[in-house]
């Protein structure tokens, strides 16, 4: 039966059918692709999550030498009110000797305020050094207990396995004492 169908099928008819099948296939593929996108996009952060993606921090209660941790996008953000000595220490380092070359001036907007995401760039632990009783590492900044990365008073990696400095989030000073992170 299939033989006689093939025989009676003219060359022209065959081509037209192939073209139609191709069109149908293309439509199907495009349709499936368009249908898949909303499902994938639904995994992205939802509107309520995005609405919480900025946080305002009041700096007035933070005494010089103290640090606080605020939660921003589910991660800790370190806000440190640095002492003159700490700033001096951070400024004195030669940039070209660093693993991740960044000057202290590039990492802060106001010298006394160091604001960073408190997540070790090695494997994502939260380094110690926020509380006065914490170990602060060999460079007076932060120390990550997981694999022993040492950060200096500018949050730059100085020793240990971490490849990068602690990252600085996008932030801006709304006033002298109010910072918006994110």
């Amino acid at each position: 039966m299939s033989a006689h169908i093939a025989n009676s099928d003219s060359e022209d008819g065959q081509t037209r059918r192939d073209f139609l099948l191709l069109t149908a296939g293309a439509f199907g593929a495009v349709g499936a692709g368009c249908f898949a996108w909303p499902f994938i996009d639904s995994l992205n952060p939802a509107a309520d999550t995005l609405a919480m993606s900025t946080v305002e921090v009041d700096l007035t209660p933070i005494q010089e030498g103290q640090a606080i941790t605020v939660k921003w996008r589910g991660k800790p953000v370190f806000v440190r009110h640095r002492t003159a000595a700490e700033i001096e220490q951070a400024r004195a380092v030669k940039v070209e000797e660093l693993r991740d070359r960044e000057s202290d001036a590039d990492r802060v907007k106001k010298d006394q305020w160091l604001i960073m995401v408190g997540v070790c760039t090695h494997l994502g632990c939260v380094p110690l050094g926020q509380k006065e009783t914490d170990p602060k590492g060999d460079f007076g900044g932060w120390f990550c207990p997981c694999h022993g990365s040492h950060y200096d008073t500018s949050g730059r990696i100085r020793k240990g396995p971490a490849p990068k400095n602690l990252s600085v989030p996008e932030y801006s000073f709304i006033s002298d004492t109010l910072v918006k992170v994110g």
Partner: peptide, 13 residues
């Protein structure tokens, strides 16, 4: 309701 309002394409799904 969060699915209907906030999740991307949530209303459609």
């Amino acid at each position: 309701e969060r699915i209907m309002r906030d999740v991307n394409w949530g209303w459609m799904i």
